[in-house]
Amino acid sequence: MTSRVILISAASSEALRQARFDDGCPVDAAGLRRARAAAGAVPGAERRWVSPGVRCRDTADALGLAAAVEVPELTGLDVGRWRGATLDEVSAKEPDSVARWLTDPESAPHDGESVRDFCDRIARWLDTAAPLTGRSVAVVEPEVVRATVVRALGAPESAFWRVDVPPLTATELSGRSGRWNVRTGRPLEGSDAD
């Protein structure tokens, strides 16, 4: 039996536009408008999941997935004390820490989660999705999509930063017995995703 998992990246927010580490910021007006326009493009699914973040819940609701079940394992990357700061602010105060974080997957200078630990967490969740037959849809943060692609393809964690995930795009995984095929970056019709 084949399992299909479609990850939909959350709509845009002010934090995303400012390159600010997520601080619970909701989807902005443009993101809501695009998500509502794309609602008809979300395929039917036996299971509907959502990351616990505000932006993901807002996106799921706008896409017509209000009954989606929150999945704690799909929480975005924990950036610890950097939460709410912009990348420029952190880079100005802690340039060596940011450089280390972006090049060493085991580094967690923000006292949060390392990229390796995050990828491992997402891989464990993906292992639980593998035996499920039929289609599952999940609205998640872009970094969840990145980690999923890295683990599904067996790529090194250093590839994490090289996966671009625009808002309101679908990444589709299909497979069985833990072997995944990946189709990335399909814009949801009607979303005008960048």
Rank of each mutant, 00 (worst) to 15 (best):
E14C: 03
S136C: 08
T184M: 13
Q18C: 10
D28C: 01
L188T: 09
L16W: 09
A60D: 07
V90A: 07
T86S: 07
E89D: 14
G185I: 12
R151N: 03
A68D: 06
T169Y: 02
T75N: 08
A123W: 03
R100E: 06
G44M: 14
D111R: 13
W82K: 06
V27K: 01
P95A: 06
R34N: 15
E73L: 05
G175P: 06
A138T: 05
D58H: 02
R151L: 12
E94P: 03
Q18E: 09
R81A: 15
G40P: 09
A130L: 15
G154Y: 15
S136D: 09
I8R: 08
P156D: 15
R176K: 11
L74G: 00
E141D: 08
D88H: 10
P52D: 07
V165W: 00
R48C: 11
R48T: 15
D22Q: 04
V98D: 04
D78R: 04
F118S: 02
R116Q: 09
A85N: 08
P142I: 14
I6C: 12
T148F: 04
G112Q: 07
K93C: 09
S51A: 13
N181T: 13
E14F: 14
V79G: 01
E172A: 14
V5W: 01
A37C: 13
G53S: 11
A92Y: 11
P52Q: 07
R135L: 12
D58I: 00
A170G: 14
F21P: 00
T184A: 11
A10R: 01
R57F: 12
L16E: 05
D192K: 13
D96P: 09
A10M: 13
E89H: 10
A147T: 04
S91M: 11
A170D: 08
V50E: 07
S177H: 14
V50K: 03
V144T: 08
R162E: 15
T128P: 03
A147S: 08
